[in-house]
């Protein structure tokens, strides 16, 4: 108690004139990052070519949808879910099977429902008995892959001819449909987080679980809700993957959970919860995608992408900590 009091005094007296104002650091960093990225983009031949922009917008969309979902989980104080990548793969396969049976509408409903339920079930375990989120999601990875194996025996599945899936591969006003979906998902995520009671409850839970409980927040419903939405958004990513690549197998989702949490972190959402937003995550996903696209154009092969993503995550985490400390 007394320790906190010490810091309080300063805000009353305001800081000394010569001391650096740390509150400006995040703003400064943001400005530097934007300027540097812009300069690098301009200096990279072909970056602003239409095919490059289109492919950038398409690739960022898959990861972005998962990342917005992950944001809800991170904000609720449950760090991350390892199972979202597997969920995306499973949703892609369910989508194809259901489209082949009942058409696009049925497919969409089935894929989203399966993804949302698989994720919500984990959320229920995490919220109701407060099981450890990391372990639950790792267990879910094993269960999802195991279950998928029963049905597919490790093979890919494809759309039947004549399902009309091609129309979903189009553009809307020159923008790839996937990116439009990502924007909608981000808007939905932002709406949930800022303008609904559920969203505010997520922040409260993330910043202090016990305080949220004592304030009358229905904690397990809130956690389950966060995972449900995360699953639904991930399901959309899976559906888009299936449409884009005209087929699916469980490997499609591999690694998306890591990309997604990287985007969440790069956007500036804190791992410990109670802080962050969907827009930040969109920005984070865009930064990673832009850097990756630039690397490809500059002749780095794909294998460098992981390395740079890792280094970016390191850099962002370090920046965060230096901005946070007083």
């Amino acid at each position: 108690m007394t320790g906190k009091g010490d810091t309080v005094r300063g805000t009353r007296e305001m800081s000394m004139p010569l001391a650096p104002d740390w509150r400006l650091l995040p703003t400064a960093v943001r400005a530097v990052v934007i300027v540097a990225l812009t300069v690098a983009c301009v200096a990279t031949p072909g970056f602003f070519s239409l095919p490059n922009i289109l492919s950038l917008l398409t690739t960022v969309s898959f990861m972005g949808c998962v990342a917005v979902g992950m944001t809800l989980i991170t904000i609720s104080g449950n760090i991350m879910s390892f199972s979202l990548g597997a969920t995306a793969g499973a949703a892609a396969m369910v989508f194809i099977v259901a489209v082949n049976i009942g058409g696009i509408g049925i497919g969409l409903i089935a894929a989203l429902a399966v993804a949302a339920l698989v994720s919500a079930a984990q959320g229920f375990a995490v919220g109701w008995v407060r099981a450890n989120p990391i372990i639950v999601s790792i267990a879910a990875v094993a269960l999802i892959y195991g279950t998928a194996e029963i049905f597919t025996r490790h093979s890919s599945i494809y759309f039947k001819p004549g399902t009309g899936i091609e129309i979903l591969r189009g553009k809307l006003g020159g923008v790839p449909l996937e990116f439009v979906v990502l924007l909608c998902v981000t808007a939905a995520g932002q709406f949930i987080l800022y303008l609904t009671r559920f969203g505010r409850n997520l922040y409260m839970m993330g910043s202090s679980f016990r305080a949220a409980e004592a304030a009358g927040v229905k904690t397990w419903r809130t956690v389950t809700g966060a995972y449900l939405w995360a699953g639904a958004f991930t399901g959309l990513a899976g559906v888009m993957l299936a449409i884009r690549y005209d087929g699916a197998n469980m490997d499609y989702g591999v690694g998306y959970e890591y990309d997604a949490i990287a985007a969440v972190l790069v956007g500036g959402t804190l791992m410990k919860g109670g802080h962050g937003s969907a827009l930040r995550t969109l920005a984070g996903a865009m930064i990673i995608a832009i850097v990756q696209a630039m690397l490809l154009l500059r002749g780095f092969r794909q294998e460098w992408q992981y390395l740079f993503t890792g280094l970016i995550v390191f850099a962002v985490i370090l920046l965060h900590s230096s901005g946070e400390r007083r």
Binding site: I79, Y258, F314, I317
Partner: peptide, 10 residues
């Protein structure tokens, strides 16, 4: 988790 995630990707 954050640091080793960076490590993992790297």
């Amino acid at each position: 988790v954050g640091v080793t995630l960076g490590g993992l990707l790297t």
